[in-house]
Design a protein around this nucleic acid. Sequence first.
DNA 1: GGCTGTCGTAACCATTACTGTTACGACAGT
DNA 2: ACTGTCGTAACAGTAATGGTTACGACAGCC
Lengths: 144, 144
Amino acid sequence: MSANSRLTIAAHALAWISLYQRRGHGVATSEQIASSANTNPVVIRRLLGELRGAGLVESRRGAGAGWSLTRELGSMTLLDVYEAVEPGPLFAMHRATPDQECVVGYGIQPAMQGIYEGIEQTLRRELAGVTLEDVLRDVLAAPR
Amino acid sequence: MSANSRLTIAAHALAWISLYQRRGHGVATSEQIASSANTNPVVIRRLLGELRGAGLVESRRGAGAGWSLTRELGSMTLLDVYEAVEPGPLFAMHRATPDQECVVGYGIQPAMQGIYEGIEQTLRRELAGVTLEDVLRDVLAAPR
DNA sequence: GGCTGTCGTAACCATTACTGTTACGACAGT
DNA sequence: ACTGTCGTAACAGTAATGGTTACGACAGCC
């Protein structure tokens, strides 16, 4: 399926920002987050930009600029993040429309669409059951 | 996520083979299936090859060759097909290992892995709840 | 008012996966 | 021997992802 790391990195960034603020620091910079996630600041800015579009974080520009959360981690779920960074559906239909003269070709798309819809709904429910607070708790629970 | 159509095409092929056989014809050729799915026969052969590896179909070579099912559609689930054609996990970890000196960088991977595991388990259960017989029934239920 | 640090974003590249296509050998039934 | 189909390699086109550089925009601070 060619899985990507967008949800992982986004969760990482949110957990990092929150922990940083809980420790009394100011706003978090993409540079710092990128250093923790071992990637490039631009990658972080792109991802956080999408989270900002979803209202999960906000950014300040100018000197002393950076990122901060708009609400508590406990009120943010993985579904919020998923919807912000993963636009498309999980499974795709045929690239070219199948043969409409064939019974299977005619009925396959509505059939699969209905099935996929149910599956994605379940996935969303599952993602909605995990808050970013849960994520941070699990992160801090890692044995040293 | 860059969704692909492999599961869709594989289900299409299985439904087509089964319906073809129910109508009293012999084995199905990749050429015929490709025509219904509006794609290239090689694409079908590649996909069915993976299904053969999973024991869902078998192929005969030589003249009068083609594909047939090894068991009833009712005993085949979308999970069987999914596992045959989609190897990797749904969500990926960081490309480069995160900063192990950072608390978040240290704990994020085990945390996300645990969460993803549960989610994938739910997805599998959902896929296992749909048989290819269900798919064919839905296909034939499409209004003309 | 200028300096400085950070965001916002464009541009480009490398890698990877998927899909489509051509080609051709292998094989088995007639 | 002929024929039709599979099995598979090889290649191209497209798209998504992730990394990188670059630079303008912006806001706080001296």
